[in-house]
Every structure is written in structure tokens, then in C-alpha cells.
Nucleic acid binder design. Sequence first.
DNA 1: AACGTGACACAGC
DNA 2: AGCTGTGCCACGT
Length: 108
Amino acid sequence: MDKPSFFQDVYEVARLIPNGRVTSYGAIAAYLGAKGSARMVGWAMNGCPPDVPAHRVVNRVGLLTGKHHFSNPNRMQELLESENISVIEDEIQNFNKHFWDPIVELGF
DNA sequence: AACGTGACACAGC
DNA sequence: AGCTGTGCCACGT
């Protein structure tokens, strides 16, 4: 039994990210009501279970800042490109178009 | 209970 | 994506 922690909520939202879409740490934090805890979201991914597509979560500018934390730094870009998302120099192209806002999509 | 940490975000230059 | 500095909140020890 896991106690309801901020991390658990982050994983839940991250799992809801549709295929071919990406979101930012701040968006998830804001959806959880902890807008100022954007850093926490990233830290939460440190223990991200395999069900959580952490590769779909990037910073607000579309940079794959957390790619370095994957088994292989290149794996993150590979997964994104596999979902029809263009990634050049660790930066997601048309980030605004691929951006998935849980507050809007899930309807807070 | 306190200090340090952390894959960010925002304001100022 | 301009770059640098500061603030932020929740978790781990």
C-alpha cells in the first residue's frame, strides 16, 4: 500500500500522456496544484517506474534535459522520434504543437 | 526536527 | 532556447 505522495500523483499524470504528445514538468506540477514544485516533478522521475513514459516529459522549452538520466541518453530521443516527434540537438521541434497540457486535456 | 537535494520556472540583464 | 541568478516545494537522510 503506497501512501498518497506527490510522486505517486506525478506518475499517474505522466502515464496519461498520450502517444505522440509531450508535456513539461511545470504543467504536471500545476495540474497537481503544486505549480512551484516543478523541480519536484523532475526529481519524482528519478524513481519513475517502467510504466511512466518519462521521455514524454521535458522542460518548458522542449529540451530533453533529463535524457542524461536514462539508461542511454540517446534512448529518450529515439523514443520521441518513434512517436513522430522531431527532435534535433536534444530539442523538440514544434514543441508547442506536441505540447499536452493535463489541465486542458484532462480538464482539471 | 533540520539541512541538503533536485530531470524546473520566472524575472532581470 | 539568450544567459544568469534566485525562488520554489516536497522528499531523503
